[in-house]
Design a protein around this nucleic acid. Structure first.
Lengths: 240, 240
DNA sequence: TCCGCCGCTTGACCTGGATCAAACCAAGCT
DNA sequence: AGCTTGGTTTGATCCAGGTCAAGCGGCGGA
C-alpha cells in the first residue's frame, strides 16, 4: 500500500507531470515530503464527505472522477491518466468521488504543503493554473458531447480520447491509419462517462465494427482500423 | 460602443469581481489601462477563429459561451454574470463563441497586460486560480445534469441557477419560499444550455406550473412559488 | 470439475424527448 | 389599421436510446 519512495529523477512521468518544471534541487525537496501509494483496480480513493488533506500525481493507471445523484444515477466527469494531478487545492472537501479504473500508482503529498510549495515556486503555480484552464476547456468540450452528440458520436469520441491519451503502437501496422487501444473502462463505466446505458455502448461498438471503423479483438482491446473515419464519426467540434 | 472609463471605486461589481483583491493604488493603475464596452442584446462578442488579445470583467448583463458542431448543433457551456471574467489568458485563441444574451457592459483590458499584472500581483493570480478551479467544478456539475438528469430536472435546475445568480426580491412576498426571476435567455437558448429542444423546455415549464412550483407571469418573468420544491425537482446532486 | 459471478452481447419492446406542424401574440414598420 | 417578424405555446407523431430479459463466456473459489 505504501512502497518506499524512489528518486523523482527516475519517475515515469517526470516530463509530463506538474513537477516537470522543477529543477533537481527543488525536486529533491518535494521528494522528501512525498510518498507513493498503490491501489488495485476498482477501488475508492477519495470520497466526497471525507475531507481530503492530500493530493497526488498519477504515476500509472487510470482514475475516474464521478458525481452521483441520490437515486444512484452516476456521471463520470473526468478521467485521470499518468501525469495528471489528483486533488482540490484550497478546499478541504474533494467534490467528486475518485475511484481507480485500473491498478493505480500515486505520488502523494500533503495538500497544504503543496499549496505552500506553489506559493513559493510561482512557476509551479503558473503551470498548475494553465492546466486548470485546460481542465475547464476539456470539461466544456465534454458538455458539448453530453448535450448534443448522438450515441454513435459519443462512443467514437471516447475511443478517440482513449487512443490519444494512451497511444500504443499497433503490433502489426506500426504507422498508418490503424491503431490499437486497451479500454481501461468497463461498459458500464463507458456508459457513465458518455451519459448512455451500457447496452447502447455495446450496440454502438458493434455498429462501428460493422462499418469497418474498428475491430473488437476482445471486450477490452479494440483495433482502430481507420482513425480518420473514427474522428469523423465522432464529429469533433469545429465552431466556425 | 466605448463609453469613457469611470472610477473603479464606483464600480458596480467592485466587491464581486477579480479586482476586488486590489488596493486603491493598484486599482488606479489597472483603471488607466482599462476601457468600457457596451453591447446590445444578441450580439457576437468574441469568435473562435479570431485571436483574442483582450479580456474583460462583466459589469452588467449576461453572456453566453457556446460551442457549435459543424452541422449547427449548439451547446451553451457557460453563462457569465456581472463580476465574472471573460477571456482565456495564456492562449491567443478563445475556444468558445461569446454572445450577449442581454445588453452587456464590459470592463476590458489587454490580455498580455492582464497576464503581466497577475504575474506581479500574486494575490490576483491566486484568486484567478481559485475562480478557475470553481469553473471546473461548475462545468462538471453541469456535466452531471446534461448526462443524467431528466428534462424536468434540467429545467428546474436552470431556474434555480438563474434565481441564485440574479437574486431579486419578489415585489409581493419579500421573504419566504416565493421568489421572482427574470430569465435572461430565450427558450432556444435555455434548450441549448440544457441539451434539450425549445418545445421540451416550454412543456416542462408548463408542467412545473401545473404542479404549482412556479408561475409564468410572462415568457421572461417567472415567479417561483416554492423554492424548496424547485430544488427538489432539480434533484441537486448529493454524492453520499 | 463444477458452480456462481461478473461483464458483455443480443433481442424485443417501450417511452421520453425530438420532430413536424400549426397557431398565437406582442412589438415594430408601413 | 394591416403586415411582418421573432419568440412562444400546443398538438400529433416518430424514433433513438432506454428498459427488460435472456444467454454467453471467462475466471476464481470450493
Amino acid at each position: 500500500m505504501a512502497p518506499r519512495p524512489r528518486a523523482c529523477s527516475a519517475c515515469a512521468v517526470r516530463e509530463t507531470a506538474l513537477c516537470g518544471v522543477l529543477n533537481t534541487q527543488q525536486l529533491a525537496r518535494l521528494n522528501r515530503r512525498s510518498y507513493r501509494r498503490l491501489y488495485p483496480a476498482g477501488q475508492l480513493i477519495a470520497g466526497v464527505a471525507a475531507s481530503e488533506d492530500w493530493c497526488a500525481t498519477v504515476l500509472s493507471g487510470v482514475i475516474k472522477l464521478s458525481k452521483t445523484l441520490s437515486d444512484g444515477r452516476q456521471q463520470i466527469v473526468a478521467l485521470l491518466f499518468p501525469g495528471d494531478f489528483l486533488g482540490r487545492p484550497y478546499r478541504a472537501e474533494f467534490p467528486y468521488t475518485a475511484e481507480t479504473a485500473t491498478e493505480v500508482q500515486l505520488c502523494c503529498y500533503g495538500r497544504t504543503y503543496f499549496e505552500g510549495f506553489m506559493q513559493e515556486r510561482s512557476d509551479l503555480k503558473q503551470i498548475f493554473l494553465e492546466r486548470t484552464l485546460d481542465s475547464v476547456d476539456a470539461a466544456r468540450d465534454w458538455m458539448l458531447l453530453l448535450g448534443r452528440k448522438t450515441a454513435q458520436e459519443k462512443v467514437a469520441a471516447l475511443l478517440l480520447t482513449i487512443l490519444q491519451r494512451t497511444s500504443r503502437p499497433c503490433p502489426d501496422c506500426e504507422q498508418g491509419p490503424c491503431r490499437q487501444l486497451i479500454m481501461p473502462l468497463t461498459r458500464t463505466e463507458m456508459a457513465d462517462y458518455l451519459g448512455l446505458r451500457l447496452e447502447t455502448v455495446s450496440r454502438q461498438l458493434k455498429q462501428l465494427e460493422a462499418i469497418g471503423t474498428i475491430k473488437r479483438l476482445d471486450p477490452r482491446r479494440i483495433s482502430v482500423r481507420d482513425v480518420d473515419a473514427l474522428a469523423k464519426a465522432a464529429s469533433s467540434d469545429s465552431t466556425p
